[in-house]
């Protein structure tokens, strides 16, 4: 099995455990072993956007040093760092780019981190979706054991997989990577124009009202086109679009709850993996009644 360094991020160890477990199981079917990097630290979840702010890049660079060390010890077969959470993906990848483009700033950071070996650059960041695309969607198709054909699901990309361009894993305006995957596992894919509209992100802490408005727009737009569930790859999108449905319901009494899956939960279902990897108890809106209705 091919071993790749894996960065989970904090949330995948708590509210997003269902994402992590289903992703590790999915990857295993595809012949990939996700080797969690040791002593990883929070990437910071957002990249600093001012030119002179280097301290906030340190967290990501420290994680790259861990990848470098794993490679030096020959523990992994890949110099890329795999992520699942879209926000970690975006942050780590942005910093990887910045360090590549601004060697002087990397020098400063290396000097500051005098207890670490120097980061030599070159660690790139990849998302599980990209690795799947690299393997080919036919490969995915060949692993499918269970038909999910009756399930009408709309992919929700959000921001951080697609923007800005330099970190995008697909065309920022017309992405297809999730659709391709969902098609391969035989889901009925429903397109929605709001699939890459922001869910409000961290505004959920300070301005939850905005998040409720955006969540309502995003969910209803998908529902109008026939979707019965959304699928995402971000535990913050999942929180904003799913857990905040409680608040949406207060605002719009007629609103009906809609389950939100992680894409790996659907692959795990399609691959016929053990139920516990999906840990549906952690999904804020229980998707099991829907799955039962669809005889899945």
């Amino acid at each position: 099995m091919k071993k790749i360094p894996y960065y989970p991020g904090c949330t995948l160890k708590t509210t997003g455990k269902n994402f992590e477990d289903s992703a590790i199981a999915t990857a295993k079917v595809l012949g990939l072993k996700l080797l969690e990097i040791d002593r990883w630290n929070c990437c910071g979840t957002v990249t600093s956007l001012t030119q002179d702010d280097l301290i906030h890049h340190i967290a990501s660079v420290r994680n790259f040093i861990r990848v470098q060390e794993m490679n030096e010890r020959g523990e992994v077969d890949d110099y890329r760092l795999l992520t699942l959470c879209s926000m970690c993906y975006n942050t780590l990848k942005s910093v990887s780019n910045v360090m590549q483009e601004r060697p002087d700033d990397l020098d400063k950071i290396n000097n500051f981190m005098d207890r670490e070996e120097d980061y030599k650059g070159g660690v790139t960041v990849v998302h599980l979706l990209e690795l799947i695309r690299e393997m080919g969607f036919d490969e995915i198709k060949s692993k499918v054991k269970k038909s999910l054909g009756k399930l009408k699901v709309s992919p929700y990309y959000g921001c951080t997989l697609l923007r800005p361009k330099e970190v995008a894993l697909d065309d920022p305006e017309v992405p297809t990577i999730m659709e391709d995957l969902l098609n391969a596992i035989g889901v009925d894919v429903i397109d929605s124009p709001k699939k890459s509209m922001c869910c409000g992100s961290y505004q959920t802490v300070r301005n939850p009202k905005t998040v409720v408005r955006l969540g309502y727009e995003i969910i209803e737009s998908a529902r109008k086109r026939g979707a019965e569930a959304l699928v995402t790859s971000c535990p913050l999108c999942a929180f904003n679009l799913d857990d905040r449905q409680k608040e949406i319901k207060l605002e719009h009494p007629d609103f009906e709850r809609m389950p939100v899956f992680y894409f790996t939960q659907l692959t795990a279902l399609a691959f016929g993996l053990k139920k516990d990897v999906n840990n549906f108890d952690l999904n804020f809106t229980d998707p099991r009644p829907l799955l039962k209705k669809k005889k899945i």
Binding site: G44, I55, I58, A59, R62, R115
Partner: peptide
């Protein structure tokens, strides 16, 4: 604790 920037100053 969510403000930690992983600067490692505390460890030092």
């Amino acid at each position: 604790i969510a403000r930690c920037v992983s600067c490692n100053t505390c460890t030092k």
